[in-house]
Design a protein around this nucleic acid. Structure first.
Lengths: 149, 149
DNA sequence: GGCACTATCAGGAATAATTCTTATTATGAA
DNA sequence: TTCATAATAAGAATTATTCCTGATAGTGCC
């Protein structure tokens, strides 16, 4: 048993001020902030909060289904207050992550069980691109090329 | 300028013994090993090699296009000796990553530029499932549910 | 209100993956 | 061989995250 075993949803426990503020701040943004970004936002209202508390509460809120913990590429975990299923675009230059509204392409999963032997339970589709802001900033700068992991 | 600026491919520099062995070991496997897994393999042939050397050379080999650095979900970076474009399946239980042979669904990218304002340069499609081995191991154990980041 | 019980907190230490630094060694050209 | 340069091993530093500890605060019961 390597981890604590709260695999699936738990009851929402006591709603503390810290928890409340984290939830509110996450609800305010359309972006998909990292724990650290949330920490910085929340600290404006609760200057004594610690980063550990932010991590713990994001974990708890995610476990009880109030927010979702994104499992995207990239070093840092990101969190999302929007629980409806959707895809994401990531800007290769500034690392910004935004939503893509599109109906899930469940048909992609169809033939895979046969092809791979895996029991397929989902998929993750992430687009890679350059956001409008970065397109403007770097006209001739010409950065990196595509990725298709 | 936050990083060294070897953005796009560089010339393949001197092929050292260490570099050679790393490349060979990566070519031998069909899996997508982490730097540490490669380190353990390579160390059987070059016991004095350091993990830093493995990281540095994986970076170099990836920069000059000899291997590809995968940008998948999950904490650890993975590397792939197979340069042909393909998708991946990840087992939620054992974290194994395997190939999915399928023609790239470039049609997914079509309408996105209009919808998002991003200049789309690629996409990443990752399937999530339970590998045959883990399916056997855990019949009634019933672990985690789907993810769709 | 006072008390026990527990969840949560802040702060900081611990861990894991990766990158960087430094002194040393190998390589190849002149 | 000599020299300049590139690459190495080892370990320190960094980054993101998790864990630990002692203090604090909320809750129900008297």
């Amino acid at each position: 048993m390597k981890k604590q075993t709260n695999s699936l949803s738990r009851q929402m426990p006591r709603m503390t001020r810290q928890r409340q503020v984290i939830l509110e701040e996450l609800g305010k943004v359309k972006s998909h902030p990292t724990a650290d970004e949330i920490y910085r936002k929340v600290r404006r209202r609760l200057p004594r909060i610690s980063l550990g508390t932010v991590y713990r509460n994001l974990e708890i809120l995610s476990d009880c289904g109030s927010i979702s913990k994104l499992d995207l590429a990239g070093r840092q975990r990101r969190f999302d207050g929007d629980l409806t299923p959707h895809y994401h675009v990531r800007c290769v230059q500034c690392e910004r992550v935004e939503d893509v509204r599109a109906e899930p392409h469940t048909e992609l999963e169809k033939s895979l069980t046969d092809a791979t032997g895996y029991r397929i339970i989902g998929h993750r589709l992430e687009f890679i691109g350059i956001c409008p802001r970065c397109q403007k900033r770097s006209h001739a700068t010409g950065r990196r090329a595509a990725a298709c992991g």
